[in-house]
Amino acid sequence: MANDKHSLRVTDKYSPQVISVSSWRAFTGTLKRDLLLVFRRRSDVVNPLLFFTIVVTLFPLGISPESEFLAQIAAGVLWVAALLATLLSLDSLFQQDMADGSLEQLVISPHPLAVMVLSKVLVHWLVTGLPLTLLAPLLAVMMFLPDEGYSTLFLTLLMGTPTLSLVGAIGAALTVGLRRTGVLMTLLILPLYIPVLIFGTGAVISAVNGMAVAGHLAIMGAMLMVALVMAPLAAGAALRISLNG
């Protein structure tokens, strides 16, 4: 909706093919730039992982170190910790670009904003969601997750964390212009994360109990697809509003 003005201007000059090529260039250009920035600020990658590890460590200390008990709550604890780690890392999605003014350049550029938002979200997932997914099986060992659960845990996180990044981008875009965003963004985003949490842990629990998980994975895939289509548009519209206000 919000992009109509720009795409119209482009269609006047170029053929549809050229537009898709230029959108693709906008996508890869943003991708390369953001990856380079992340590479130079490596703490952004490490901090969420440390957070994830520490939160998981708190549960045996706070509740009980018994292996039978931990095995029961392992899936839930890992998923909740991954969810919180993603949430806390969302600040970095637009905040830095807002501070140095490059976000405004993105918004006024003639390329569709949703495409560039998607590329930013992809970078965010590559530096937080993907490492979390890779780290989770290790922490699952510490939580005594039964052997049957590992592959499902990995798969659900692989499909769930991009959904979290995508939905979180809407919250980050809505709050980027505000001063204190942390608690507000949590309030906006956490309720929307609940379905992902339910199906993520549900799948791991079913796998541990020896039941089929294809249905859960299909639903998580469907949620990812819906988020993939709608979240960049919503986040783009939200960015425009945040920059105007």
């Binding site: 505000l178 709608m230 919503a234």
Partner: peptide, 21 residues
Amino acid sequence: LQSAFDSKQSGARASAILSLV
């Protein structure tokens, strides 16, 4: 979210997006 924005218009638009989501 409505009350977080200084400008009433931006607050209304931002919360409209949130309620649509």
